[in-house]
């Protein structure tokens, strides 16, 4: 992670047209990748839980959802920081942006649902259902946003437009960033699962002592 930070801030050449702010790109895109990866893990964990209701599947889905929400928050914060100087606006309703925002809202709802459910088992089942429905919805939202753009044809320079023009050093740092963030995600996930196991043990102990 430190090496990644060093590469991003010290080594990689500053972008000729966009300037220093382009460096946020090395946080933004890997965070988005981790966000989507996390929600895929939620989806898989949710299906597994409904097929075979073992607490560890719920723990996996829950932990991944929390981490995914965190990384999507980073995406939504770093995006406008980059967009304002480069596009001239903080926000635009392009398909990628719309999908990211709605995805974030779905998983905020997921975490709220868990907090407000009456029992642990219901929280697990409800959130598993939402984890599946939410994930299925993501490509549909993306498609709707594309169709909607077709009707309002305003040309915006999308994040995709930069892809082909990456210098080799930039590409290297970018891929290194993606790798670092993925490792970070796996580490977070392990940590969160450990905490979750401790929470479950504690809850069991409390129930046992109150009996």
């Amino acid at each position: 992670m430190l090496a990644d930070l060093a590469l991003i801030f010290l080594w990689v050449p500053t972008d000729a047209t966009m300037g220093i702010v382009q460096r946020v790109f090395y946080f933004h895109v890997p965070s988005a990748w981790v966000g989507f990866l996390a929600f895929f893990v939620v989806f898989v964990g949710s299906i597994a839980y409904l097929v075979k209701p073992a607490p560890r599947w719920d723990a996996l889905a829950h932990s991944a959802a929390e981490i995914g929400t965190l990384f999507m928050t980073i995406v939504l914060i770093t995006g406008p920081i980059w967009a304002r100087p480069v596009w001239g606006v903080w926000w635009t309703w392009s398909p990628q942006l719309t999908t990211s925002l709605i995805l974030w809202l779905i998983y905020v709802a997921y975490l709220m649902l868990r907090a407000y459910a009456p029992t642990q088992q219901q929280a697990a089942r409800y959130s598993a259902v939402l984890g599946i429905i939410g994930f299925v919805d993501v490509p549909i939202i993306y498609f709707a946003a594309i169709l909607w753009r077709d009707i309002h044809p305003e040309k915006v320079v999308g994040p995709m437009a930069e892809r082909g023009s990456l210098a080799p050093e930039m590409l290297f740092v970018f891929l290194f960033s993606v790798l670092t963030f993925t490792v970070l995600f796996v580490m977070f996930l392990q940590q969160r699962l450990t905490v979750r196991r401790a929470e479950d043990t504690l809850a069991q102990a409390r129930r046992a002592s109150s009996r």
Partner: peptide
């Protein structure tokens, strides 16, 4: 079945039906 059910329904429902 959740607490604050009047708020939970729109919070769950709106993002999914947005398309």
């Amino acid at each position: 079945n959740t607490r604050a059910r009047e708020i939970m329904l729109p919070v769950l429902f709106f993002p999914i039906v947005l398309p």
